[in-house]
Amino acid sequence: MRTSYAVAIVAVFTSMIIGSDFALAGIANFKLMDTFVFIVAYAFGFKPGAAVAVLSETVWSVVSPWGQAGELAPFLIGGELLFAFAGWAASKVWGAERKAVSPTAIFIGATLTICAFLWDLETNAAVGLLGGAKSLAAYLGYEAMGVPFMIPHELGDFALGMLFAPVAILMVSRFRKVV
């Protein structure tokens, strides 16, 4: 992939993620970031997906209306790379998406849900770490308290992964052929 093309892809998707994050800020734990990162990695490979993940999460960690993520930011950024890896791995398993509606859509939704679950586990553990947790029980406490927030995040990712990601991957793949 040409460098200018890759930069354009990363810039466009990062902008869309930040814009949509602000637009959806009023809806609890429902964001397009995970799905977009997955889509970019699926359609263009791991590196552009990872670049979008790192850039968008870094920007969001600073400009989020809920305040800066501070010390938690590296954990959020690291966790977001999961979606890039999953997108790239999924493209190797399922290949180019040819239909907007297919059984694969459920698997894409499930993949995003698993990634969201791992991201939640990792970031909740980080909250515990930064909050001074010193025992396994304390960490489990932080994980348990995070459950009410994890559920809408994972349900949202499943819905977007099943309904939006296959269509978006198809559209992006067609756009790629034109370019």
């Binding site: 734990n29 989020s64 209306p65 959020l76 909250v127 995070g146 927030f149």
Partner: peptide, 13 residues
């Protein structure tokens, strides 16, 4: 409460 910055939420304890 415990503040979860990644979700913008407090868990009240």
């Amino acid at each position: 409460a415990t503040w979860y910055p990644q979700y913008g939420e407090h868990y009240v304890t």
